[in-house]
């Protein structure tokens, strides 16, 4: 996993609540056996019309947001399906930070497995940021170590993040490798469990 430390990038405003993972990446793009290449399906129905042509008014199709690395959006972003294709698609498109007042639980969790930083700001701060990003300057700075987001006009917002998740993001640590250092604990737990719950041991 690539570490996330600091990001200076264009921020694209998408002021809608409850954007679900079916909208982030529709079903037809889930049939891949790869993690890469999913950007073509990102927000597919919002980005493209029925003929497959880009909708010029959709934020990620507008030239002033080309190369956006940050998405600023509404409440409960990422609700619905557990598909990790949603953070994969965002990352593949170049978005490595999503800022919202709240996130759906499984999506939020999936982000941290991939070095995509989900930032929760207060609703009025997100409103502020959405407003600014709709103006002429959409460059924001996200500093994970300092836990700050700096708006295009220079306002600084701070955010909360779980310390263990923050540490893993900053270093790009692999969770499996870390858990495997506890293998003796897992062995011991399994041995005890086999005694207390013998019916779960399939011959």
């Amino acid at each position: 996993m690539k570490p996330f430390t600091r990001l200076d990038a264009r921020a694209a405003p998408l002021p809608l609540a409850n954007i679900d993972t079916d909208q982030i990446i529709p079903k037809q793009f889930l049939k891949t056996v790869e993690r890469e290449g999913l950007s073509r399906g990102l927000f597919y129905d919002l980005r493209f019309d029925d003929a497959g042509q880009p909708r010029p008014d959709f934020v990620l199709n507008r030239p002033e947001y080309a190369g956006a690395g940050v998405l600023v959006t509404g409440d409960n972003f990422g609700c619905g399906s557990s598909r990790e294709h949603a953070p994969w698609a965002l990352m593949d498109f170049g978005v490595t930070c999503v800022i919202a007042p709240s996130f759906a639980d499984i999506f939020y969790n999936n982000c941290f497995q991939n070095g995509l930083l989900p930032v929760v700001l207060k609703p009025d701060e997100v409103q502020d940021l959405l407003g600014e990003c709709q103006g002429g300057n959409h460059m924001v700075s996200v500093d994970l170590a300092a836990q700050t987001v700096t708006s295009p006009s220079g306002k600084v917002f701070t955010f909360e993040i779980d310390p263990s998740r923050k540490a893993k993001m900053l270093q790009g640590l692999d969770a499996i490798g870390e858990t495997l250092t506890a293998a003796p604990d897992i062995d011991a737990w399994e041995a005890r469990r086999a005694l207390t719950h013998p019916w779960l041991e399939r011959a």
Partner: peptide, 21 residues
Amino acid sequence: AHGIGTSEVEHVLATQTLRQK
């Protein structure tokens, strides 16, 4: 019982555990 993402599927396959809050 709950849903997990693919990275966590890999984690459970490898360790039979999940890191949780």
